[in-house]
Structure formats: C-alpha cells, structure tokens
Design a protein around this nucleic acid. Sequence first.
DNA 1: TCCTTCACATTGTTTGACAATCTGTAGACT
DNA 2: AGTCTACAGATTGTCAAACAATGTGAAGGA
Lengths: 218, 218
Amino acid sequence: MASPASIPRTRREIAAQGIRRAIILGDLAPGQKLREVALAAELGVSRPTLREALLLLTHEGLCEQEPHRGFSVARLDATAIRDLAETRLLLDRLAATTIAQDPERIAELTAAWETYAASGTDPDALAQHTALVAFHRAMWMAAHNDTLIRLWPTVESLSTLVLAQDQAMRSDPKRAIDLHRTLVTAIASGSADQIDAALHAHTRQSAEEFISSRVHER
Amino acid sequence: MASPASIPRTRREIAAQGIRRAIILGDLAPGQKLREVALAAELGVSRPTLREALLLLTHEGLCEQEPHRGFSVARLDATAIRDLAETRLLLDRLAATTIAQDPERIAELTAAWETYAASGTDPDALAQHTALVAFHRAMWMAAHNDTLIRLWPTVESLSTLVLAQDQAMRSDPKRAIDLHRTLVTAIASGSADQIDAALHAHTRQSAEEFISSRVHER
DNA sequence: TCCTTCACATTGTTTGACAATCTGTAGACT
DNA sequence: AGTCTACAGATTGTCAAACAATGTGAAGGA
C-alpha cells in the first residue's frame, strides 16, 4: 500500500491495490510478466491508468520495468533479503528510539499493537499480512519522522515481496504477535539494549530463518 | 535523478529529467502548482506521458499530489529537513561501514571522490549539484546493498529539495570537497569512530547550519 | 460584509490509434 | 544437423482528442 492510511480515491489506486493484492496472495508470481492489455481488462481500467498504477508499484519496488520489455513482478534473491533485513534494522531502531522518548507516541504504538493483536489471528492470509504490515506502518508513523514516512512505501513493498515469495514465512501467528509485544514493551521501557534485542529477534532472525529455509536460488 | 546512472531512454524520463532540472535551478519553486497542459507543451510531451513523469517525481518526493488538485513541487519544513539529516546519518553510516570492509569498494569510493573533486568546482550551480549528488550516489552504490539502492532515489530527491529551497546551502565548493575527502579517508581507515565523526560533520552539521540560516518558516 | 451559486478551469480517466521495439519462428547458409 | 538471419506478430511507448468529476473563483443575494 503506497497510500496506506488513506482509502484509495482514484481508479489508479484501486488498480494498484488490486495488483498488490494479487502479488501478496501469490496469484502473480515473482518474475512474472505483466501484460498491460490483459491486466487492464481484468482490473477494469484503461491502459494509461494501469500504466500509472504499474509505475507506482515499480517505484515501490514491487514491480520492475525494462524499456520496451514492459513490467514484471519483482524478484528478490537471498542477498537482497539480507540487505533489507540489515537496513530495516537500522530504520526500525530509529523509529523505536524516537518513539521511546515520547509517552504520547508510545501510546500510539501500543494502540497499534492492540489493533494488530485483535485481528492478527485471522485465518485469511491476506488479512494476517495486512494486520502485521499495518502495525509496522503505525510504528514508523508514530515516530513522526518525515523521511521515515517517505521511505516507508518502498520498505513496505520490499517486505511484502519477501513474504509473497514464500508461504513458509507466514508461520505461527500467535508467536508473531508475542514477538511484537516484546518489541512494544521494550520500546515502552525506554532501554536501548532491550529495544536492540527485540529488534534483532524480530527483523534479523526472521530473515535468516527465511533464507535458510530456501535451498535453491536463481 | 531516479535512474541516474542510465541515460534516459524514454520520453517520460526526459520529461522527468527536465522537471528535476527546473526544480534544482529554482525555475520551479517549492509549493508551486504544476499545470499539466502547460508543462506538457513546454516539455514537448503528451499529457499522459507528463503525468507518468510527475508520478515518478511524486514517488521520489520531489512533487506532491492531492486528488483532483493536481501536482505541485514539494515543500519541506525545518522538521522535515532535520528528519532527513537524522535518517541519512544512519544510512550513510551503513553504507560507509559496509564499504570499509572491502578494499575493492573503497577503491570504487575513492574513484568517485576523484571524479567529484575534478568537476565539483564548476561555476555552474547545476553542474556542482550534479557532481556532489553523483558522489553520494556512488557511495551508496559502492555499498552494494540492494535496499540502499532502492531507497536512494527518494533520499536523493529529498536532498535535492533541501538544496533547491535555499541557495545559501550552496556554499564554498572547495570546503565541500574537503569535507568529503575527510569522509573518504575515514572510510578507508576503517575506524568506526572516524567514520562517525566525518559523517556527523557532514550530514548533521550541514543541516543544522541550513536550518539556522532560515529565520522564517511557513 | 459575508455567504451562496454558478460558470469556468483543471484534473482523472477513457478510447483508439500509430510508431518503435522485442520475440519467436521459419528459412538460408555452412 | 546446427547456427545465423529475416520477417511477421505481439507488446510496449507515446500521442491526440474527448468527457466526467472535482476544485476554484467571481457574480449576485441576504
């Protein structure tokens, strides 16, 4: 979701949302070519509008575009996944430490976690994913850092791609909720060490697990 | 420049480049509304193509779009500038420490600095800006971190906006080159403390200077 | 003076089309 | 037979013109 908090107002946004959904659900596999006419027809929008949507997704990182070869669903290798984990760790820490300095922002974060915990056990994979992503987005927004807000769409889509590439990533929902509660608690405590520990447990470990679960690479 | 290293192959890219240039040069002021028909005519492209270009710039952060109110040149307040400085500090450090671990990457960085030093004193403001930006881009690319590469366009455009908002930022070119040589040296030395010091001197101090130089805010 | 209403301007989107480029296949050549 | 070349089809990049939806500003009324 590029404009996540806001309800899509334009047909372009609706189209983009539909494609994101298809990628998350696995209906569009990484690397798959996206033929404009067919997609436009399927989504019920014109080709120019579809192209605007695809361009949006390309900039988010969900799609790729080569001149005269069109758009395709982006593909991540193990290195890219590790890079994402490393970078996210830094930025998550920035968000976390910023939040930790302001009780009001801690309250925001706690509220976000409660929302997530309430709907994070939904049996539907998409709903689960959406809830988890919403929590992380809320965390970045709670930091009230303008640059983080701008960088979020790219980070969100990269994360989504990682999840979309392998169902194995969607492991135990309850364990995930616990993991994030630990993070919220750590932030509320204000202890830098606790925050670091929780973040490592969260981001890095997840990525390592994910990579090691994949034997083959292209 | 969203696709900076590559020569623009499509008319969309040419249009985007033209708009970026106008913003950097100050021909398009922050906050200014961008009327599609006029701009399209001026750039010699059709309205749909122009919209694709504007969408690109919007995602980079150079422009903003409100539904049915169109596109305008983005505007940054003091807080946003400080946020950018803080976030860049983190990511620059990631790039720097990554580079420091590999002699080959250090060589890449050094080569980039030499290129920058050679053309950084150009009297033309645009050329100066381009050279400086190219150095920073090269630094992020030299880290070979996939996520950094993806995040760069956004960071670059935010930085460009900061520069575009005030000519005062474009201070002494020679001093700037020295500042960056210090950074390169620090990275080559591999000392984390030296890297941190150089980065602080670079990013943060520049931003603070910039903010303090501006009395008024909107 | 302030608010409402309406015409105008601009955006969001569509349709249809054409040139440029890519892709895959069939035929020519070694 | 295997490899290269040329062509036809498919797909993309771009354009032109148009219409509906929404925003904006000015004229008129309370």
